[in-house]
Design a protein around this nucleic acid. Structure first.
Lengths: 227, 227
DNA sequence: GGCATTATTCAACACTTGTTGAATTGGATG
DNA sequence: CATCCAATTCAACAAGTGTTGAATAATGCC
């Protein structure tokens, strides 16, 4: 049985291209071109199938995008819920650093989803912005909880606005993943990957000092992101 | 002489649509759709002329985009050079806040240019990324100079990396302009405009404390952005 | 073997895109 | 008035778009 050879028969090869494979291809193409400029034909080409097959699995281009979101974010939410557990009594600095590591782990291979989300939020495509917000809100609220607990525990400045602090922390993490590797290697002499790690540590160093109740206290040891 | 009526004559109405008017329209359309998805027909419709006219003034769609960049950034650079003057002996906090105000003043009405720049940098369109970098680099280096002077004057932490600090400061300002108004009004109860001002102050408060040599010293008075 | 089902492709539709060449018009100049 | 030029439009091109309906082949079930 030739299972992987795909003998270029014009007929069907049932159950060979599953929706997940299509989502992988879609993600890669969306990454390069953005939602609107990405073409279904390019996605199909990448998946090695006919464009029409996409319509067998998904109702439309936007439904494909929505499925992409729904595949990624629930995982992230589960981990964030774990981090926000009030029974977690590790230092707040460690917990917030874990937030960055979690974002890094889940999104580092997803430039597509990152820039698409931002793009669609900014230009407010009808329907999509709501879907995105619905996926992101619970995750953001977990991070906010960590800030609130940090204030209650006397580790963070009481005048902090937890929601804004959340925005600053995670938004910068995404900019570090997206933009820093495109900008810095030409100015400094760093590989794109070490750019990300350097940027993350420099960022957290400044941010933590900015929000800590006692900025002169030493920050605990923060592990590098896993490769 | 009917000068403004545009009698719908199919012929020409010479010297009525100047390139600057075209750039205005292009900017608005690029803002909504991004460089790749924006159509010349949409730009022409907005400018009230025929698509072909665009090719009379500009060589191509990308040349139009490039002209857009070249129209905006030189102004910004002039002001940034003024701010980076080493003879400026105001407190570093004031000077860095002025950087944010300058960005705000120049870019607040330009969502198009902001998101386009980011998008094209991230996905590295050939040629365009170079042009963008060429425009942005001198501006970024001005801001970096302010950080270096602040370190030399003993106002900033000596272990600061000026280039990274520049990235954090101005990149977040752009995210505050772009994303915060789309996100926060639904969570907090703020108008989009007050969202920006609130975000800027909260951001600078955290950032300054993070980079100052003496984080407990009070920050000087920082004026609101002009409306 | 026949049959329904499932996964797949083909071919086409109507539409939009960036771009170009020829035509047209208004004004200035002679 | 004729001529020239700059500004503008028209009409068309080839290519690409999302989407759909019909056709096709492999599989599992009776």
């Amino acid at each position: 049985m030739p299972l992987a050879s795909r003998p270029k028969s014009r007929g069907p090869k049932p159950t060979k291209v599953d929706p997940d494979h299509l989502l992988d291809a879609a993600q890669a193409v969306f990454a390069e071109d953005g939602l609107r400029a990405a073409s279904l034909r390019a996605i199909a080409r990448r998946a090695g199938c006919d464009p029409a097959l996409i319509y067998y699995h998904f109702a439309s281009k936007e439904a494909l995008f929505a499925a992409l979101l729904r595949r990624r974010f629930p995982q992230l939410l589960v981990e964030m819920k774990g981090l926000a557990d009030p029974k977690d009594h590790r230092p707040t600095a460690v917990r917030l650093w874990e937030v960055l590591l979690t974002y890094h782990r889940h999104l580092k291979d997803d430039p597509g989803i990152r820039s698409m989300i931002r793009g669609e939020m900014v230009r407010g495509v009808e329907g999509l912005a709501e879907l995105i917000e619905e996926q992101i809100r619970p995750i953001a609220l977990c991070a906010r909880d960590i800030f609130e607990q940090g204030i209650a525990r006397g580790e963070l400045r009481p005048d902090l606005q937890p929601l804004l602090a959340t925005f600053f922390l995670v938004r910068m993490q995404i900019e570090i993943l997206d933009l820093l590797p495109a900008l810095l290697p030409r100015l400094l002499y760093l590989s794109p990957e070490s750019t990300v790690v350097t940027g993350m540590r420099a960022w957290f160093d400044i941010f933590w000092r900015g929000i800590a109740l006692d900025p002169s206290a030493p920050t605990p040891h923060l592990p590098n992101p896993a490769a």
